[in-house]
C-alpha cells in the first residue's frame, strides 16, 4: 500500500522528472486514467521507468514491476498466470515499453505472448529511438532520422510493429497518437476489454530527441498523422479499420521541418520518403479493403 505524501488528481504523480513537453508523460496518464487501479504494470528500464520512481519514492500508485529491457511481455505473462491461478481474472496486466524494448530487444518475448494468446495488454510508446540512454537509433527510428548512432540519418526504413502483431492474428491491436487523445483513450479501453493479447502502438513525440521546442509535442503528433508518417488504424478480430482517412496527405516535408532530426534529409531523399509514405498509406487502405 502506498504512503501518500503528495496527493494527485490521477494515479500518476504530478511531479515526475520526465522532460518538459514529454509525450510519454501524457500517454501514461491517459492510459492509467482509463485502466484504473485494478492494474499491474510492467515497465522495462527506459524513460517510462521514471514512473516506477527512485528509491522509496514512486511516481504512480498502481502495483507494478520494473523488469529488464527484453522481457516486459514475459513478466506480464507470468503475472497474469499467477493471478489467474488464484482466481483473479479481472486485473489488467499491462506491459508498457518503449520502441527499443519492444521492436528490438523485446520482440521475442512479445511474439511469445501474442502466439500463446496470453491475456496480456501491451503498449509500445514509440518515441522512435533509445531516448533514455541518449537518443540512439532503434529499429523503429524512421528513415532519414538523425540519432546519435545514425549521425548521417537512418538509412533504412522502420520495422512495422502492427504488421508483426497482425501476423500473429491477435484479437486486437491498434495505433494511436497524442494527435487524438479521445481516440487513444477509446483504444486503451478496447485493448483492456480484449479477451486475449492486445497491443497498442502509440506515437510518442519527444522534444529532446526529435529536436523541437517542448511546446510543439501535440502539434508534431498531429502533423505526423496528417502527413501519413503515423497512420491511425485498428485491427479487430481480423478486420482493419482506418481511423483517419485523407483525400490527400500533407507533404512529409511539413512534418519533417517541425523537427531538427530530419535536417540532413536532402531533396532527393525527401522525394523518396514522400513516395514511401504515400505507398504505405495506400497499402494500408488496400489491406483494409478500401481501395
Amino acid at each position: 500500500m502506498f504512503d501518500i505524501v503528495k496527493e494527485a488528481s490521477g494515479l500518476v504523480s504530478h511531479g515526475v522528472s520526465a522532460c518538459a513537453g514529454c509525450g510519454l508523460e501524457l500517454i501514461i496518464r491517459n492510459v492509467l486514467g482509463v485502466l484504473g487501479e485494478d492494474t499491474t504494470i510492467v515497465i522495462p528500464p527506459g524513460c517510462s521507468a521514471l514512473f516506477c520512481g527512485y528509491g522509496p519514492n514512486a511516481g504512480m500508485r498502481v502495483s507494478g514491476l520494473q523488469g529488464n529491457l527484453e522481457n516486459t511481455a514475459a513478466y506480464a505473462a507470468g503475472i497474469k498466470a499467477g493471478y489467474a491461478m488464484q482466481g483473479n481474472h479481472h486485473t489488467t496486466v499491462l506491459g508498457f515499453a518503449g520502441d527499443g524494448a519492444t521492436v528490438d530487444i523485446g520482440i521475442q518475448s512479445l511474439s511469445g505472448v501474442m502466439e500463446r494468446r496470453d491475456k496480456v495488454m501491451y503498449i509500445c510508446y514509440d518515441n522512435e529511438a533509445y531516448m533514455n540512454t541518449g537518443i540512439q537509433g532503434s529499429s523503429s527510428s524512421p528513415v532519414g532520422a538523425w540519432t546519435t548512432t545514425t549521425p548521417g540519418g537512418k538509412p533504412t526504413r522502420r520495422k512495422d510493429l502492427l504488421r508483426i502483431a497482425m501476423a500473429h492474428d491477435i484479437p486486437y491491436c491498434a495505433s494511436a497518437s497524442l494527435a487524438n487523445i479521445p481516440d487513444l483513450r477509446k483504444k486503451v479501453q478496447k485493448a483492456k476489454d480484449t479477451d486475449g493479447p492486445s497491443l497498442l502502438h502509440i506515437h510518442c513525440p519527444c522534444p529532446t530527441g526529435w529536436r523541437y521546442h517542448p511546446s510543439k509535442t501535440i502539434e508534431v503528433a498531429k502533423s505526423a498523422v496528417q502527413s501519413g508518417a503515423w497512420l491511425l488504424y485498428e485491427y479487430c478480430d481480423g478486420n482493419i479499420t482506418v481511423n483517419t482517412k485523407f483525400k490527400e496527405l500533407k507533404p512529409i516535408e511539413v512534418y519533417f521541418s517541425l523537427q531538427g532530426r530530419f535536417k540532413g534529409v536532402n531533396d532527393e531523399g525527401m522525394a523518396e520518403i514522400q513516395q514511401q509514405v504515400k505507398s504505405q498509406y495506400e497499402a494500408l487502405l488496400a489491406l483494409a479493403g478500401l481501395e
Binding site: 494527485a8 518538459a20 520512481g53
Partner: peptide, 23 residues
C-alpha cells in the same frame, strides 16, 4: 487493517511528487 511490514529488496511505496515547478 493497515500494518507496516519490513520488506527486503527494492520497491517504491511512497507516492510523492518532485518540485518540477522549479524547472
Amino acid at each position: 487493517k493497515l500494518r507496516r511490514f519490513r520488506l527486503y529488496g527494492p520497491c517504491s511505496h511512497v507516492f510523492d511528487a518532485s518540485h518540477t515547478g522549479s524547472w
